[in-house]
């Protein structure tokens, strides 16, 4: 068996993305959806780091910088998202996204 290479990291990233995607699509709880979004973002982080290491080469930091940005963004997003969820709850007395279909109009 050879040493761990780029494809292994990509597979982990894809798996994480898939899980996040499934979470977002199937969860009816808005908080659950937010958690799914976190997973997707982290899948992207794994890819950034892996590509930075194997493609850019050691000593380069482009991928790491992107990752830092994404993490910051995720934190902000979580805060805004939870605030929206709270607002939805106060409007609809529920955070079930199936019930909150006023977006249709």
């Amino acid at each position: 068996m050879t040493s761990i290479g780029l494809p292994h990291f990509l597979i982990v990233g894809a798996a994480l993305f898939a899980l996040g995607m499934i979470t977002v699509v199937t969860r009816r709880n808005a908080v659950g959806i937010l958690m799914g979004v976190e997973l997707i973002l982290n899948a992207a982080n794994v890819n950034f780091i892996a590509f930075n290491h194997y493609v850019e080469g050691p000593g380069k930091v482009t991928g790491q910088v992107f990752s830092i940005f994404v993490i910051v963004l995720a934190a902000a997003e979580a805060a805004v998202g939870l605030a929206i969820v709270l607002a939805i709850y106060q409007t609809f007395r529920t955070i079930d996204v199936q019930e909150t279909d006023t977006l249709r109009q």
Partner: peptide, 14 residues
């Protein structure tokens, strides 16, 4: 098609 359910839209996107 326009159900108002975010998830359906997501399905569409996916």
């Amino acid at each position: 098609l326009q159900t108002g359910h975010i998830q359906s839209y997501l399905y569409g996107a996916l």
